[in-house]
């Protein structure tokens, strides 16, 4: 692993964390307000997804013209396009957890910076859930292959 690649990964993480902080996504009360469509619905976080998908899509448009990434040998994009029970079951479990606490993985990890015990507890439980998956689920996940 070379240094430019590590710096690019660091810069990407920095943009991500700053974006989360600016967007309001780090605040569970606001996230739950966004999900509470039957209550005092706060639609503002829909703009986070809109801004993120819009700029990310520009990235994919540029990628289509590149034979390979600037700093790596190949693009590693999931080539699996089929919907299966695992995808659906995982999305349902994740959605329930997201709706219970208002945290998804990115905001929770970035939120560790704030030094609140509640965030640390959530992140510890999230790691436990990931390890539980690792030790219980069958080995093969969707193949990560090169896609052009």
């Amino acid at each position: 692993m070379n240094t430019p690649r590590l710096l690019a990964a660091f810069a990407s993480g920095l943009l991500f964390g700053a974006g989360l902080a600016l967007s309001g996504m780090m605040d569970p009360a606001r996230v739950l307000g966004f999900l509470d469509v039957a209550g005092a619905w706060d639609p503002s976080l829909a703009f986070v997804l809109a801004g993120a998908v819009g700029v990310s899509a520009l990235g994919y448009a540029v990628k289509a013209r590149m034979p390979r990434p600037a700093l790596a040998d190949q693009f590693e994009i999931p080539a699996n396009r089929s919907v299966d029970a695992r995808l659906l079951g995982g999305a349902v479990l994740f959605g329930i957890g997201w709706g219970l606490a208002g945290f998804c993985p990115g905001p929770a990890l970035a939120g560790l910076t704030l030094g609140l015990p509640e965030v640390a507890l959530f992140v510890a439980a999230m790691f436990a859930g990931m390890l539980l998956f690792r030790f219980t689920a069958p080995r093969s996940t969707g193949p990560i292959t090169v896609s052009r």
């Binding site: 349902v92 959605g95 957890g97 997201w98 219970l100 929770a108 439980a125 999230m126």
Partner: peptide
Amino acid sequence: AGLLVGFGT
């Protein structure tokens, strides 16, 4: 919630 988010994702 953390367990569900970790396992589910």
